[in-house]
Design a protein around this nucleic acid. Sequence first.
DNA 1: CATAATGGTTTCATTATTTGAAACTTGGTT
DNA 2: AACCAAGTTTCAAATAATGAAACCATTATG
Lengths: 267, 267
Amino acid sequence: MARVTGDGTVGKALEVLDQVAAFGRPVRFSELLDKSPFPKPTLYRFVQTLTSQQMLSYDPERQTYAPGVRLVRLAHAAWEQSTLAPIARPHVDALSKAVGETVHLAQLDHAQVLYIDKRNAGNPVQMYSQAGKVGPAYCTGVGKVMLAFCDPKVIDSVIEQQSFHVFTPHTIATPAALRDELADIRAHGYGFDREEHEPGIICVAMPILSDTGRVLGALSVTSTTRRTNLAGLEAYVPILQETANHISQDAQNWSFPDYETPEATRI
Amino acid sequence: MARVTGDGTVGKALEVLDQVAAFGRPVRFSELLDKSPFPKPTLYRFVQTLTSQQMLSYDPERQTYAPGVRLVRLAHAAWEQSTLAPIARPHVDALSKAVGETVHLAQLDHAQVLYIDKRNAGNPVQMYSQAGKVGPAYCTGVGKVMLAFCDPKVIDSVIEQQSFHVFTPHTIATPAALRDELADIRAHGYGFDREEHEPGIICVAMPILSDTGRVLGALSVTSTTRRTNLAGLEAYVPILQETANHISQDAQNWSFPDYETPEATRI
DNA sequence: CATAATGGTTTCATTATTTGAAACTTGGTT
DNA sequence: AACCAAGTTTCAAATAATGAAACCATTATG
């Protein structure tokens, strides 16, 4: 009797929620059933419950389910309280203004890169990545620099579980190559994305480390091969370093004001 | 035996999640216990489960809980699939560029205004920074115009449940005043925020209606009394109207491509 | 037009999980 | 040392989840 799900009923319901989100589009009950380990009535009741709880939304027209708006509300709270974003915001603003290129702020969530903030360059290069979006760690600048400074055990387990997918001719495709790259990043203190995820897209990334060396997140400046090159991006290393330091300091000094009873907006 | 919670165990767990989010800051177990209808061990296990599921994050240092990062991931999916935001994005971009003022895109969620996108006047930040925030419907431009075009029954129930809170000298403070205002909005087709929520902050708001007259959302252009006045904002009505129409059209024509098997980024 | 198939919904006896009063542990205070 | 508060675990009783089967409503199919 292998425990696949864990955490009882609530865990299972959340698994269903993840399933729906993973589809990336409104999904029918039967489609969900195909991919679900649960029997029909069980899954049915989960979807009912989640819908009634606004965690899913139901389109009666097309008979489809999608992640619900309650999540957006909750996520706002999460974003403000459990991410670096609010602390980093002024620093990211300043960085963005100084470099005039797209800037990303990311954190590591499990083995994945979670983008938690972004500033578009003046002319918006629309591409993959927005706050809340996740991506693989091994082929993004921010992912690699965060991984590089993780605990060796974490690195091992991430690499072990990672299925390497080749996005471009430059994608790092083997555990060995990734380990080399990580060593390289540790040696320099920062890293690059050399068109490893999208052709023509390059970036320079800097980890945000606590005083004890723990990885808090990462920053990156992204551009295109048409506008600049790796050497050009490397010029941003000092300001990135400085910004990362500022964020790290603020993060460690920061704590929520202990007293205040906020004027609630809840009804 | 009044059923307060509904939806069994999952509903209760989500109630706890809301509680944590409502605090707006990291919260101790005992604080939560004070405000919770659940007995100690029950609440304890819920918090454990939610934490293990990454819906809450736990800070062992301070012994506090906060909404977890998994929510940010899930919310991204919700934002993309269950809101107007992705459809409206290009139109909101264009509007923002044209007017050079702060632009909001909102939807109605229960009786509350849910901001789902925003363009700041100065730097084009698009994202959760503000998206996900909720506010009362009766004293925001977007809230009023959405309410105005809702079903009369909905209006009644919202007004009935609304507890009016006076934010500024201009805040609409009575059901009667609100009904007058809504009638006025229906007559004109658009509405204003006359410093009703924050002193010095004014806006003009336009509902986004489907062909059948259903409320899909609302747009607003916000400014300050220092920079302009209501007459100045009214000049934006034509472009707001046009933008709202475009969004409405796109929303009704749009449906997810039925076929495609998206190249998954999941590990 | 009947019939089958598909996708969705409900029933109900069985089973497993949740529940919470009470007891216990831990770390800090007088 | 005794006390206290916050957090954690126990365990029998109460409750909710489970899923095989049956049912219903549409939409294909012969």
